[in-house]
Design a protein around this nucleic acid. Structure first.
Length: 436
RNA sequence: GGAGAGGUCGCCUAGUGGCCUAGGGCGCCGCACUGGAAAUGCGGUAUGGGGCAACCCAUCGAGGGUUCAAAUCCCUCCCUCUCCGCCA
C-alpha cells in the first residue's frame, strides 16, 4: 500500500499526471482502478455470506440452549447452511486475496506525485535555488607563492587521517579506517551536529539500532524497492541500516498521535551501510563513495498543513551545519524525474570540494507527505475523539560525514600542508590545526 | 542457550468452545446536579474495510489448524517478565 485507495479513486487525474511527470507508466493507475472495483465487489459478496454464516452459527447455539439435540435434524439443517456458506466464502476469499495482491503490486508502482512547485523534467531541469560561500579555486597564489589544492586522499595520507588500504585489508574496499586526528574529526563532527540540532534547533536526539528487521525495512520502502542497496544478515533476517531514516521513522510505525504531540522532530546519528551495487568503478579514490559512513539524520513527523514549510526549515537546518563549518554549498531543487519515486519534493545540498573541483552531495532533504506514513500506518487525531489521519513525514541529512570530511580537508588545507580546523569544530577538536 | 510465567478495547483487569455483538475498574469526552467545583448519576469512548444509510465484515501478540461456531482447544513463530548459564 502506497497510494491510498480513496485518493486513487477521487484524485486519479492528478495521480496519473504525477506518474507521467516522474516518467512512470500512467496506465497502471487505470489498471488499479479496475482491480479496486473488482475488490469491492468481491468484498461485498464475501461479507454478506459471512454475515449469513455468523447468523446460522448463532442460531445453532440458541437452538441447543433451548433444548434441541446437538445432533438432531433441526441443528443439522443449520449446520449445513453454515457449511455451504463457508464453501462459497472460501472461493470468494481466495479470489479476493489474489485481486488484492495484484492491486497492491500495482499500487507499489504508482509514484508519489510531486508537489506543484517542483520543476517537471529530468536532471537538466533541476534548479539551483541558492548558493552560499566562496568557491575556492584549485590553484591559488597566496603571499606571492602559487600552490595547488590537493584532493583529500593526498592530504589524508600526509596527515594520517584515514587509511583505505588497511580498511580494504580488514574488511574490503570502501571501508575506511579513520586514524588519529581523522578519527577525532569524526567524533567532533557527530558531536557538533547533534549539539546544534538539539540545543539550537530543538530536536530530540536518537541513537538507533544499526540493524533492523524486515518489517522496518519494508516500512521505509527499502524492501522491495532498494533491496540491493542493503547488507543483509540472513541468519537472523536482519538488515544493516543504509541510513538512520529507517530505524527512526519506524519508531512510530502503527502509532496514532494526538494533535498536540506534533510536530515530532528527531536528530539521529547512525553508521550507514550501503552496498553501492551498480556503482563499481565510480568514485573509487578517497572517501566520496564508501560502503560504510557516518551520518546525522533529521526525521520529522508533521501535520499535513505544516509539512511544506517544515521542508524549508529542515533544509535550512542542514545548511546551518555547512555555514558553521564555513563550507561553500549550493541547494538544488530536484526535478520530477530526478527526485525519486516516493518523494513529493526534494532538495539536495552539495558542498564545494576545491581539491577534486566537484560538488559533493552531502544532504538530501525530502517531504514524503503521507506516502511513507501510509505504508507504516503513522497517524494522528486532528481533533480529540476524531478520526485518525495520516501524518506527513520528512527527512534530511544533517549531514553525511564522509563527503563533509573530504570538503573540510580540501577547503581548509594550507600551503604548508597542514589543515586548519574550522572555528566551530575547535572546541570539539581541542586544537586549531592538524599537522603531520 | 536452559527452565518457568505471561501477551485481551489508552492503562489495569475478567474471561477454559455458543448468554463474548469481549464484562468491570481507571482515565478521557459529553450531559445532569452545583454559585463554581469536588463527589455522585446517566451516556459515550479501538482500528481498518465495505455501504448513501440503517448496518455489515475483519481484528483479543503473528500465522496456520480443529469445529456449524475459537479470546478460549492444537501447532509454529515473535515479544515481555522471573530464575539459571554465558558475556562487552
Amino acid at each position: 500500500m502506497s497510494i491510498g485507495l480513496v485518493r486513487l479513486r477521487e484524485d486519479s487525474d492528478r495521480i496519473r499526471q504525477g506518474a507521467i511527470d516522474k516518467g512512470e507508466d500512467p496506465a497502471i493507475v487505470d489498471q488499479a482502478l479496475v482491480l479496486d472495483g473488482r475488490r469491492r465487489q468481491l468484498l461485498g459478496d464475501s461479507d454478506r455470506l459471512k454475515a449469513e454464516r455468523n447468523t446460522a452459527s448463532k442460531q445453532i447455539g440458541e437452538a441447543i440452549r433451548a433444548g434441541a439435540a446437538p445432533n438432531g435434524p433441526e441443528v443439522a439443517a443449520l449446520k449445513q447452511a453454515s457449511t455451504d456458506a463457508g464453501a462459497q466464502i472460501e472461493k470468494l476469499d481466495a479470489e479476493l486475496a489474489a485481486t488484492e495482491s495484484a492491486l497492491d503490486a500495482l499500487l507499489l508502482r504508482i509514484p508519489n506525485p510531486a508537489d506543484p512547485d517542483v520543476p517537471v523534467g529530468d536532471e537538466s531541469a533541476n534548479q539551483v535555488v541558492r548558493t552560499w560561500g566562496d568557491l575556492l579555486p584549485k590553484d591559488e597564489t597566496s603571499d606571492g607563492t602559487a600552490w595547488t589544492r590537493r584532493p583529500h586522499w593526498d592530504i589524508a595520507a600526509d596527515l594520517k587521517m584515514f587509511d583505505l588500504e588497511r580498511g580494504a585489508k580488514i574488511t574490503g574496499s570502501g571501508f575506511p579506517v579513520y586514524t588519529g586526528q581523522g578519527s577525532r574529526l569524526q567524533r567532533a563532527l557527530i558531536d557538533m551536529m547533534l549539539d546544534i540540532h538539539t540545543a539550537e534547533h530543538g530536536m530530540t536526539e536518537i541513537w538507533p539500532p544499526a540493524l533492523v528487521n524486515a518489517a522496518s525495512a519494508r516500512g521505509t520502502g527499502q524492501i522491495p524497492d532498494k533491496e540491493d542497496l542493503m547488507y543483509v544478515v540472513p541468519r537472523d533476517d536482519l538488515y544493516l541500516v543504509p541510513t538512520a531514516e529507517v530505524p527512526v521513522t519506524n519508531l512510530h510505525r502503527d502509532e496514532i498521535f494526538e494533535a498536540d504531540q506534533l510536530p515530532i522532530r528527531y536528530a539521529a546519528y547512525s553508521p550507514c551501510f550501503r552496498r553501492e551495487a551498480g556503482a563499481a568503478g565510480k568514485d573509487t579514490r578517497g572517501i566520496l563513495r564508501v560502503h560504510q559512513f557516518d551520518k546525522v539524520e533529521m526525521v520529522f513527523f508533521e501535520k499535513p498543513e505544516a509539512s511544506a514549510e517544515a521542508l524549508e526549515w529542515l533544509t535550512g537546518r542542514a545548511e546551518v551545519i555547512l555555514q558553521r563549518l564555513g563550507l561553500a554549498y549550493r541547494v538544488l531543487l530536484m526535478a520530477t524525474k530526478d527526485m525519486g519515486f516516493v518523494q513529493a519534493k526534494k532538495y539536495d545540498i552539495e558542498v564545494w570540494a576545491p581539491g577534486v573541483e566537484r560538488w559533493l552531495e552531502v544532504s538530501s532533504c525530502s517531504n514524503f507527505r503521507d506516502y511513507q506514513a501510509r505504508r507504516m500506518a503513522i497517524r494522528y487525531r486532528p481533533e480529540a475523539g476524531g478520526k485518525p489521519e495520516l501524518v506527513h513525514t520528512l527527512n534530511g541529512s544533517g549531514l553525511a560525514l564522509a563527503r563533509t570530511v573530504a570538503a573540510i580537508m580540501e577547503t581548509y588545507q594550507q600551503p604548508d600542508g597542514s589543515l586548519a580546523v574550522p572555528e566551530a569544530l575547535q572546541p570539539y577538536m581541542r586544537t586549531d590545526r592538524i599537522t603531520a
